[in-house]
Structure formats: C-alpha cells, structure tokens
Design a protein around this nucleic acid. Structure first.
Lengths: 174, 174
DNA sequence: GATAATTGTTATCCACTATATCAAATTCCG
DNA sequence: CGGAATTTGATATAGTGGATAACAATTATC
C-alpha cells in the first residue's frame, strides 16, 4: 500500500524554481487574507508569539540539546536542592506520570540524578550532577546573550519587562 | 493484568478530608519552591499565560463547544469568503493535512461547507453556513463580554492593548 | 503533449497532555 | 498496635496537536 513509486526517482529530478506568479502566499481571490477580529484576540497573538519564542529558544540553545521544559527543570533543581519529583513537577505544571519519562531523559544524559530519601523511602530526592550544573551554566549564558537579548532588541528593555510582568500576572491571577 | 481490584470498592469508601499539615503544596523542605531565573524567562510566563487564557476561552465559549482554533477558522471564513483550504490553513499556521479533519468536524456540525470551485476543480471553496454565522455571532458575543472583558478587568484596557501589540509584534517580527 | 506543480486527502509518526491503576512506603486514627 | 487511607514514583493508555511522506485528480509549464 505504501509502495514508494516516486521516491526513488525524486532525487534524480531537479525540481523547478517556483511558480509563475511572483507574489508569494496569495491565491486567486487576491492578496493576503483579512485577519478581522483575530487581530484583537489576545489568545491568538499569545499563542503565535509563544510558538515563535519557543522556536527561537530551541535555536539558541540547540548546541546543548535542551528544550524549554528541560531547561526549566534544571533551573528549578539548581535553586531547590533536596526536593522530590512531585514537588518539582507540580511547580512546573507537569503531571507526575509525564515527569517520569522526562527525568529518565535527563538522568540518562547524566544531567541529574534520583536519590532515595532517607526520611521517606517512597520519594526520590532530585539533584543536579556536575555535568548538569555545567550544562545549565552554559544554557543560561546562551539564553541570556542570544535569546533574551534578541527580545530586548525587538521590544526594548522597558517594554520587555512590562510584557513579562503582565504575562506573569495573567499566569498567576487569571 | 489490568484487573480493577479497588475500583469496585472505591465508590463505597468516602475519602478522608486531607492531610494533617495545614500548609498546602509544601513538602518536607519547607514552603513553596524558588522560581529563580524562571521568573525572568519570558517564554515561561508566555506559555503559562497562554494556557490560562485558552482555558478561560474554553470556559466562556463552552455552551457553543468551540475551541480557539475552531473559532479562528470561523472568523477567517466570515471575513474571507471564497477562499480554499490551503489559504485558510496557511493563514492560521495550520498544516493542510491537519486542516482536513478540522474541517470535517466543522462541516459535520453544519457550521461550514466545502464547495467545488468552478475555476479550479481541485480546490474547495469554503463558506460559512447560516448556522455557522449564527454560532459565530454568539461566540463573538461570549468572547467579548466574558473572556476579553475579564482580561480587561485584570490588566486594564490600556495595558491589555499594549500587551496585545507587543505579542503581535513578536508573532510578526521575531 | 510530456513533465512538473498544486489541492485535498490519507496514513503515520512524534511530542505533549490526561486519566486510571499499581506497589511500596508512610500517615492517620481508633 | 494495627488496619484504612494517603502519598510517591511508576506504568499503561488514550487523546490531541503538529509534522512528513505519499497519492489521485487537476492544473500549469514549457
């Protein structure tokens, strides 16, 4: 059913440049579409902006192979030593079942470790490894000098701070 | 293996109130965790705020059973009649394959319809049905009077506008 | 008229999210 | 003390969103 008929031939065929129409992204009806009330919908711009920011984060921190979620875990572990999985996961809004695989990934890369607590032998105390601290330090530098710096450049420091505070307020009180 | 042993008994057991410790969400180490640099990470607050806003959107528009994505499609169809699937999907950042099932859902609820174009018999011209227009009108009212109004109340109209413009700028230029 | 591109579609695949359930360990409370 | 309930980490599983490859029908290109 999934017989690759063209796949073996595609490499031998240099595709054509583009289409005749020089205008990009437009159909028969005319130019770009009207966004209408979408432009005033906060949630819409919020979502599009979030995707862009995460995309840039991944680019900037690509040499360390860290996702935003992984970076946030390393940050929390560094600032909150001696906590268990439930506490870290809850703080980040990650469900405990989903946090297991995430920790497996970080632990398999020797960025953090689970240690059985002596007080409560159910829980795992999470700690950063030396490598984890080193990676975190490098990641922080990349984020600050490339990622956040680019946002500063786009918005200006004052606006960036105002934006941050409003977003934090929404996340906290909405 | 997945024999439900406790499920049949759970209903008969009224669970206890809570735990002994009155302080909520804290572990052995102390109170709430330190957020550290996370508080200054724009992407982090952006993501948390986006989740909150979408959550509230779903609540406000729940009687109409519309997701933010579905609402955005209805809005675009209303403002841009005579466009095909590729144009609508591209404008919303939805990949064409994923847009098919989405349209199936809207069409099965008689909110929109696909019409074969006479010019190009490959493409489907998308149109809102009467019911689709009615639902959209009610949705717009709910969004304005409940959802956006609540954001206005939290931030103030001026701040809300400033926030919107910064997010739009990020989505556009970042 | 042959070749390439476009449109809608299907089939997958991956990441993320959500719920139910479990065993081990701990707490609660009579 | 001792049984019932809770907590913790874990597994399985399902749902959703996003992404790529491939395909048939149609249209554009040269």
């Amino acid at each position: 059913m999934t017989v690759s008929k063209t796949a073996t031939l595609d490499a031998a065929k240099p595709p054509r440049p583009a289409r005749k129409d020089g205008a990009d992204g437009a159909g028969e009806g005319g130019g770009p579409l009207q966004m209408g009330e979408l432009a005033e919908l906060l949630g819409y711009s919020l979502k599009r902006a979030q995707l862009k920011v995460f995309e840039d984060f991944l680019r900037c921190v690509a040499p360390l192979q860290l996702t935003p979620a992984q970076f946030s875990v390393l940050l929390l572990l560094d600032k909150n030593p001696g906590r268990n999985q439930t506490e870290i996961a809850n703080t980040l809004g990650i469900l405990r079942p989903n946090f297991v695989a995430m920790l497996d990934g970080l632990e398999s890369r020797d960025l953090c470790a689970r240690m059985r607590s002596t007080n409560d032998r159910r829980s795992h105390i999470l700690v950063l490894t030396d490598k984890g601290r080193a990676v975190l330090a490098r990641a922080k530098k990349l984020v600050a000098t490339k990622h956040e710096a680019r946002l500063d450049e786009l918005l200006g420091p004052a606006n960036r701070l105002a934006l941050l505070e409003m977003l934090a307020k929404i996340a906290r009180e909405f």
